[in-house]
Design a protein around this nucleic acid. Sequence first.
DNA 1: ATTCTGACTTGCT
DNA 2: AAGCAAGCCAGAA
Length: 138
Amino acid sequence: MRNEYVQAVLAVVRLVPAGAAVSYGDVAELLGSGGPRQVGSVMSHYGGDVPWWRVLKASGHAPPGHEAEALLLYLEEGTPLVGDYGSYIRTGDGRWRVDLAAARWAPTDEDFESIDTVAEELERRLHSLSVPDDGMIV
DNA sequence: ATTCTGACTTGCT
DNA sequence: AAGCAAGCCAGAA
């Protein structure tokens, strides 16, 4: 993954406030570049320094492999949850997920500006350093 | 160029 | 709720 892209993704994730959440696909859309898998890849490799638990699957399920820690964080910041997380805490096998319909981040105008800036910068950098290698001359 | 592999998503059982 | 097939985008071999 290009470093420019990594930085852009992390910048967007840092904007998501406590108690809110977005899906991997949401981030890709806001950025207008890459897809859900790319965002997931970035988070798995470089998400350690940002609120990674606020980025999850479209189903509302926490990042694979980090459910337990994420749940504690959701409870701390009051993120809307659905399902039986009580038993998950006790036995580890309860079924729950983030109520994305209620928790999905609604960017403010200011956030959108910030995102646009990041997205434009990303585009600029991606185009300045490379030239299409399969461009057909007509 | 081809194939495989992912913190993905959607639709269908 | 859980599993699966496709579709998806990129990087690695």
